[in-house]
Design a protein around this nucleic acid. Structure first.
Lengths: 298, 298
DNA sequence: CTGTTAGCATAAGTATTACTTAACCTGTGG
DNA sequence: CCACAGGTTAAGTAATACTTATGCTAACAG
């Protein structure tokens, strides 16, 4: 590669003025320095860049080509630096956030919507997925912060220095419509009865259900019939209410229905499964105004 | 603008490796120098570019933006420099040539065609026009060389230092078909008889005719009837042969017809008007291989 | 658990080189 | 015609980029 980028800057300035003296004035250095810099560049490239015409430097074809390369760069650079400057002046720019599927598509987008009402200059790139894939991306700088369902204490075995703070906890219940419940589970919510039911989950591999069963019974139920897989809490909720079967939902979302009796939750005597969402950030990373503004809710 | 472009190069290298040590190895400088350079850049921009993670530098969003600006530049630059290098290795690239309309559209394009058969990697941009517009463009570096119908001695009053060399001289004759000649000029080609004839010229303002009359009679003939104006020697020639009237053409183009008597040229006793084409180049300008190869015919 | 290693930051000294000053040359314009 | 503006070159100075040295921390092997 070329050894010295600064000479290119000098060249760029000369080219624009077709004059070394004018370039020198713009760069606040002596005309001699400009002349020497140009000379070195020409020797370096072994290419004549300007024809020395009295009181004027006439660019050669090579100089034209070179300028065509540098000019857009300088333009982009100035634009980019101005943009960086602007991002520091207030909440604007893009926030790259990672989140678990459920939290990301439900709570997070609501927060985003509310936030953008106040700060329409902030854009969002939300990546949904497991912490196992999200945290490495955070560590690689591809995300600004991630929401993950890990416990504040646990988290990194020996992962990079993250700062983890709890953001939200919610109880998860396995629920069905009152009708479905009384038809299939009237005798009680024992494992045997449950195993024969129909289920709804958020994604292939039924992670939510497996998690719930592991928590409550310390064993897996391989043969569960998942009659609907859909990555939407609202959809699962509607499925439950429609009597499709049993699904995992945040308890607070069905509070009213539980009280009214139109929806039933399976209780095992154990405390409910807790979904704990933590905010994970890279330690030592400076937060932009947009980031600060967005996270001050937590 | 940013004060130091070289720091951007260091940044670029760090970013690619996500490591200062690796960048140092690539740049053949010490790790400390890289670290200091990055620190200065960050202070200059007042923006954190990397999060210092043990044994790794994790880019921030700002660093990503910056990289997006620099990366294409470096790519273009390397490509461009390689191209410049290639242009020096042999005839390739583009030649920007200026020429008078007649010479340019007739002789020059033939030369170009012949040249490109040997050197297909050379491309041409021919600008047709008057020296008055072409020479300033040459002086401004927009053209590599121009052909102009000026005399080797004359040329620049106080124009930039051009090197002028005669390239071609041709006699210009005022000719018509034998039929037209015997019908209108059988009594002799005196000014009075000529004044009543029909004429053909290459462009509005009939410059070729005016030039011819000034040369032969030292006076202007304001009332000439120009029945056809067309910027093509071939067209003028066909017009002459078709008996449209009198037109100016290079003598060598009608040599056979003059001998055979099918075309007649007006002779005044004075030596024929000479059209002298000169090659004009910027003094002190290094010629590329393509330029050298093209001009070695002259 | 501990020693070792790899990587980054910082401090201080050195060396490179970019810049200035000065002299000279050359067209241009008042 | 002389003054001027612009460009080149040479030599000395000043700036700063780079090196060497030191300390720190996390990962990793024994």
């Amino acid at each position: 590669m070329l050894t010295d980028f600064n000479r290119l800057k000098v060249f760029y300035t000369i080219y624009r003025h077709k004059s070394a003296a004018a370039a020198a004035r713009e760069l606040y250095i002596s005309q001699s320095a400009v002349s020497q810099s140009l000379g070195k560049l020409e020797r370096e490239l072994k290419t004549q860049l300007f024809v020395r015409l009295h009181k004027k430097l006439v660019p050669t074809a090579a100089a034209g080509s070179l300028y065509e390369i540098i000019e857009p760069f300088v333009r982009n650079l100035e634009g980019g630096l101005a943009w960086l400057e602007a991002e520091k002046s207030g909440p604007r720019g893009v926030l790259r956030i990672g989140a678990p599927v459920e939290f990301g598509s439900r709570n997070l987008v609501e927060l985003v919507a509310a936030f953008r009402r106040k700060h329409p200059a902030v854009f969002f790139e939300v990546s949904l997925g497991h912490p196992d894939v999200l945290l490495p991306r955070l560590a690689a700088g591809e995300l600004d912060f991630v929401f993950a369902d890990i416990f504040p204490g646990r988290g990194g075995k020996n992962l990079p220095p993250f700062t983890v703070s709890s953001v939200l906890t919610e109880k998860l219940v396995l629920a069905s419509s009152a009708g479905y419940y009384s038809a299939r589970l009237k005798s009680g919510a024992d494992p045997a009865a449950l195993a024969g039911c129909d289920f709804l989950d958020y994604s292939h591999g039924r992670p939510a259900l497996l998690n719930w069963f592991r928590h409550h019974y310390d064993k897996s139920f391989p043969g569960l019939k998942v009659v609907l897989t859909v990555e939407s809490v609202q959809a699962i909720l509607n499925g439950i209410k429609g009597g499709l079967g049993l699904g995992i939902v945040p308890e607070y979302l069905v509070e009213k229905e539980l009280k009214a009796g139109s929806v039933k939750a399976v209780r095992t005597g154990r405390p409910e499964l807790i979904n704990r969402i933590s905010l994970v950030r890279l330690k030592g990373r400076a937060a932009s105004p947009a980031e600060k503004a967005f996270l001050e809710n937590f």
